[in-house]
């Protein structure tokens, strides 16, 4: 692919992480450019979430380099990740049921004018962000408990946009959503891409992944097992890479099976 000349916004090289005898990740590479949605797929326990947690500062790799804008960085804490422009939506969303939409968006990052919380300003920003995602949440004052699952996911995604991040990590954003809600979340992801952000999308749903991603990075047993361009690869090829099934060799998109450390041509 011809975007080698561009410096990736996020690059992870040779990432290795062991929990005792469990090899969570072995020599994994990942590159994400601005204005790109990269899907991270793989079976349960393939290492997707572990990798995501490293981007967002929750876990630190045993070995390997993380680069942002070509500069090596360390991401020791989630705060450090936020300072580097990384925002993450975890599977459990981490929202407060009893607070309204605005308070959830700004939780821990409330705007102040002089000494007091500037509620008017926060509502203004909340409304603008929800609109930029073409979200259908009727009121920024609705308590979270009154929103549907899909609307909560919208709030969680909107929350990442507070503080103008450059990289957004979404862990299973469409799991257990209805089709209308999935439609809205997928539209949000398209909007994030249009805003020029780099998006790392973790999902089990191949239809959703192939609908919005530009590239699919397959992890298998903690190792890279394929990098597939969505526009040219088939559903079967993705599934084959996930399960380790043999496929007909296709130039530049196929590597030998059982390759323990093969980095796929990016």
């Amino acid at each position: 692919m011809s975007d080698e000349a561009r410096v990736p916004l996020l690059a992870m090289r040779g990432i290795t992480m062991r929990f005792g005898a469990v090899e969570a990740l072995v020599d994994v590479d990942l590159e994400v450019h601005a204005h790109e949605v990269v899907a991270l797929v793989g079976d349960n326990g393939a290492g997707k979430s572990t990798l995501a947690k490293m981007i967002s500062g929750v876990l630190q790799p045993d070995a390997g380099i993380i680069e942002i804008d070509g500069e090596p960085v360390t991401v020791p804490t989630p705060q450090a990740a936020a300072a580097l422009g990384v925002a993450t939506v975890f599977q459990d969303l981490a929202l407060c049921e009893n607070l309204d939409v605005t308070s959830n968006l700004f939780l821990g990052r409330e705007l102040r004018s002089r000494w007091v919380r500037d509620d008017g300003q926060m509502e203004e920003v909340a409304r603008r962000i929800l609109r930029s995602l073409s979200s259908r949440i009727p009121s920024v004052r609705s308590p979270l408990s009154t929103l549907s699952k899909g609307q909560r996911q919208s709030v969680a995604i909107a929350r990442t946009l507070i503080g103008s991040p450059r990289i957004v990590v979404l862990d299973e954003p469409t799991a257990a959503l209805s089709v209308v809600q999935t439609a809205e979340v997928l539209t949000h992801i398209e909007q994030l891409r249009n805003l020029g952000l780099a998006v790392v999308l973790i999902s089990h749903n191949m239809t959703d992944v192939r609908a919005v991603a530009d590239r699919i990075e397959v992890l298998r047993h903690g190792r890279n097992n394929g990098s597939l361009d969505v526009a040219t690869s088939s559903y079967e090829e993705v599934i084959a890479a996930i399960t380790g099934a043999p496929t007909e060799p296709r130039p530049a998109q196929h590597a030998p099976l059982r390759s323990s450390t093969t980095a796929w041509p990016a």
């Binding site: 209308v180 439609a183 239809t207 992944v209 192939r210 609908a211 088939s234 559903y235």
Partner: peptide, 29 residues
């Protein structure tokens, strides 16, 4: 109204299933 991104070369069974569910969801809304 609602729109939904679809995969490149989307499958007829998955897509028609999503159409049916979207129609029912929208009506319910």
């Amino acid at each position: 109204e609602q729109s939904l991104p679809l995969p490149h070369e989307h499958r007829v069974d998955t897509t028609l299933d999503r159409v049916a569910l979207l129609v029912i969801d929208l009506l319910e809304q």
